[in-house]
Design a protein around this nucleic acid. Structure first.
Lengths: 260, 260
DNA sequence: TTGCTCCTCACGTCACGTGAGGTGGC
DNA sequence: TTGCTCCTCACGTCACGTGAGGTGGC
């Protein structure tokens, strides 16, 4: 209670580790009692203010809104303890959320800057390993990102199927063919051969038009449309022509047989 | 590029997992390109918008300010990767900080609602074990909180010394005496005996007045003043009187001898 | 006397949230 | 026709940050 024991607002703030403005803010909000003033009109604080401010700071830093801090300061010990338990749960969840975000931004940096779970990355690596060039792998990657955003579960299921199919060298050849077609002239006769091979492969696998196209087999209509639009955007004229040729053959052959 | 493939702002937002308002905000900030409008003036989005928005959302959720997100979106891959590394470090530090805060709010809930490291809690438990009542233990606890706020290192050092001294049954008796004196009359003759015992103990330990008082041996002048003020506030009239009696005896005996 | 702290308004910040008032789509 | 989404302002929110203009302490 002696003068020497009384802190100015700056000393109090430094002592506890908050800003002077924050202390004034807590006064304004009614969180911290306004102390007595000295002859100069300066606020002078005692030990209790230090203890009170530590409580406020600790709760506020834990992410508790000041309105809630105010309630808690005058809450009975039982409710206080219960609230602390909830706050701790929220902090734990926040830690888990931060770890998830770390994973996502790491994925952003890796490769083509789009996030994908490990098994999707494996599939893209396998495509690359099969001789498909980066541009086409990138188009595939973005396609999977779209699918994942639309329907994560279905995307995972489709990925499993596609990875299994890719073990077939025939599909690897088709992927390479599509990749190489990027640079061809739309009138290149090899497009006809490639279209034949693709339609035949689809028939062997009992796939319809939808399954053959880049966005094949997707239930989610929005994702289907977006995928088509995306592939149309990134395709070359020859690849566009290839899609037309496939569509022609499938139409001539009649609608898909439906068999799974 | 077909109409079916074009998302409205609500579909886009739901697809990626942000609010409609957030998307509009990103347009306003220039982070996300304004798409073409349909006949009704509605924004219509394609696949690229989905990919762009995912990037923005991922960075923003990682705590990157939108101004920085804007820079990063057009940064070369090298700088982008470097920035990602920094962002990840920040996220890691945030996780560590959250764990520290969890510890602090847990301390808030435990016991008398003031945070203390484990060894301080042990000391208070020892006091309690020596027969000191909760009110006095609470005063001690708050004293240590003040010391920790002022000078954590010195507080730890002083704690080690005090814990060692407390092994002496004589000091335990003095603590109990101080505790019991709370309820006495300021004129109670036992106060004289207690003061004698305290001064004698101090002499045996070669302690001066400062060391004998509640805030003994503190280099930090602010902490010293605050501690004195705090103990004065929580002391009873009899305990106040006890302090006076000790001070008298020490003055009569002359200033402290200085011996460590 | 200089530099630092204190005082009280009061507007600024950041990333949106939230109506206000109106129109188009199914 | 009803309910839902879309549109554009434009003010509100949260916890302070940041001057603006002035005075006291060392």
């Amino acid at each position: 209670v002696t003068g020497a024991a009384m802190l100015t607002i700056g000393q109090l703030a430094a002592y506890v580790g908050v800003t002077v403005r924050a202390v004034r803010h807590y006064h304004q909000r009614g969180l911290l009692a306004e102390p007595a003033r000295d002859a100069s009109g300066y606020r002078r604080y005692g030990a209790q203010a230090v203890l009170d401010l530590i409580r406020i700071k600790t709760l506020a830093e834990a992410g508790v809104p000041l309105a809630r801090v105010e309630e808690l300061l005058s809450a009975p010990p039982e409710q206080f303890a219960e609230a602390i338990a909830h706050i701790d749960e929220a902090l734990q969840e926040e830690v888990r959320e931060l770890e998830r975000r770390r994973q996502r931004i790491a994925d952003l940096a890796g490769g083509e800057r789009l996030f994908l779970p490990p098994d999707f990355v494996d599939f893209l690596d396998e495509l690359r390993g099969a001789g498909v060039r980066p541009r086409t792998v990138q188009a595939e990657r973005e396609g999977w990102v779209l699918l994942l955003a639309a329907d994560p579960e279905q995307a995972h299921e489709m990925l499993r199927e596609k990875r299994a199919s890719l073990a077939d060298p025939a599909l690897q050849r088709l992927y390479r063919g599509f990749d190489e077609a990027f640079d061809w002239d739309p009138a290149d006769p090899r497009l006809e051969e490639l279209a034949d091979a693709m339609v035949q492969f689809a028939a062997e696998q009992s796939l319809g038009e939808a399954e053959l196209s880049a966005s094949g087999g997707i239930d989610h209509p929005t994702a289907h449309g977006l995928l088509s639009a995306h592939y149309t955007e990134v395709s070359s004229p020859a690849q566009e022509r290839l899609s037309e040729l496939c569509a022609e053959r499938l139409t001539r052959r009649g609608p898909p047989q439906g068999g799974h």
